[in-house]
């Protein structure tokens, strides 16, 4: 099947959304720009979480601890940034914290061959408990959150300029990571080995690929991505830490990953769709449109989810070996 026919519903959806946006931009340019910019903002943590999920599941390990990894990293990043005053150090701490949690997940599910769902749940519960316990009210970032970087004259273009070329650093980095991860997953030896391990670990092992090593590597790298998503929340989106600030984003990221059929580019598209629904909803409430039915507006992102899942996605096939601990004998 050609790419065109296989993803026809995605193309139809995308074309419709673009047409709709252009149409509204004609009449309501400021609002449209705001919605699109918010789409990108809302989608960033989802993309990072989904990329983490893709790295883990493509190698055969279910990671439902993304939520916990993000929350803990948001906290770690915030604490380091607020006490040192260095945002870069804060981001590094967030990524490092995610990687540590990834390594811990790998230890539980790969080395000890524990149940992967339980191992992920351990991360989630630990993150909620630890961050609530150590959380101190009144801390703040001395230097404020990450600042907007305008990309030269591109940033002055109408609509597109504000949406794409005047963002904060982690948003740019995320947009860059999507094609990079797609390329590594499908065009490098590491990617081929990852996919082989996720589909048929014993086959990979018989040709000398170490299942344990690949899974550790992917879980740690994936943890780093989720950690970056956490750092994004506290250091770039909000500028402070709040209790339970991930608010289910780690779980939505899993849905995004499945939407995107375990493909970085697909997940990016799916995250944008979620982000868009959310942004439209916010904009409606902000403007007071349909103010008589706020619940109806609040429901919109979920309606989009249901319609897309039921209508367009079809049956996605996960990597064959996910959820099963691997042992050689």
């Amino acid at each position: 099947m050609s790419t065109l026919t296989r993803y026809r519903w995605w193309f139809v959806t995308a074309a419709f959304l673009v047409a709709f946006t252009l149409f509204t931009a004609e009449f309501q340019q400021p609002q449209t720009t705001a919605v699109l910019a918010a789409t990108l903002r809302q989608s960033t943590p989802l993309v990072l979480g989904a990329l983490c999920g893709i790295l883990c599941e493509r190698s055969g390990v279910i990671n439902i601890g993304i939520e916990g990894q993000m929350l803990m990293s948001a906290f770690a990043g915030f604490v380091v940034a607020s006490s040192t005053g260095d945002l870069l150090l804060g981001v590094a701490a967030g990524i490092g914290c995610g990687m540590l949690m990834g390594a811990f997940l790998a230890f539980l599910s790969v080395s000890l061959r524990g149940d992967q769902i339980i191992a992920g749940t351990v991360l989630n519960i630990a993150a909620i408990g630890l961050t609530s316990f150590f959380f101190q009210q009144g801390r703040s970032l001395p230097s404020g959150k990450t600042s907007i970087i305008k990309i030269g004259p591109l940033a002055d273009l109408p609509v597109v300029g504000r949406v794409l070329f005047s963002n904060r650093p982690l948003t740019y980095l995320t947009m860059l990571l999507v094609p990079v991860l797609w390329y590594t997953l499908f065009r490098t030896t590491w990617g081929l080995r990852t996919r082989a391990v996720g589909e048929h670990p014993s086959a990979a092992e018989t040709v000398g690929v170490s299942v344990v090593r690949i899974r550790y590597l992917n879980l740690i790298l994936g943890g780093g991505l989720a950690g970056m998503g956490g750092a994004y929340l506290s250091l770039e989106a909000v500028g402070s830490f709040e209790r339970m600030m991930t608010n289910g984003k780690g779980f939505v990221a899993l849905a995004v990953m499945i939407f995107g059929r375990w493909n970085p580019v697909g997940a990016w598209g799916a995250a944008l769709l979620f982000g868009y629904a959310n942004a439209v909803q916010t904009q409606f409430q902000f403007r007071g449109w349909l103010a008589d039915d706020p619940q109806f507006i609040g429901m919109m992102p979920f309606i989009v989810t249901i319609v897309v899942v039921a209508g367009f996605v079809g049956r996605a096939r996960p990597p064959a070996s996910i959820g099963q601990p691997y042992s050689r004998e």
């Binding site: 081929l192 080995r193 996919r195 082989a196 589909e199 048929h200 014993s202 086959a203 990979a204 018989t206 040709v207 000398g208 690929v209 064959a320």
Partner: peptide, 16 residues
């Protein structure tokens, strides 16, 4: 010991 979703060539070279 073949990975069903990969191509023949990918399966053959996997690991080398």
């Amino acid at each position: 010991q073949l990975v069903p979703v990969l191509t023949v060539a990918e399966n053959i070279v996997l690991g080398h």
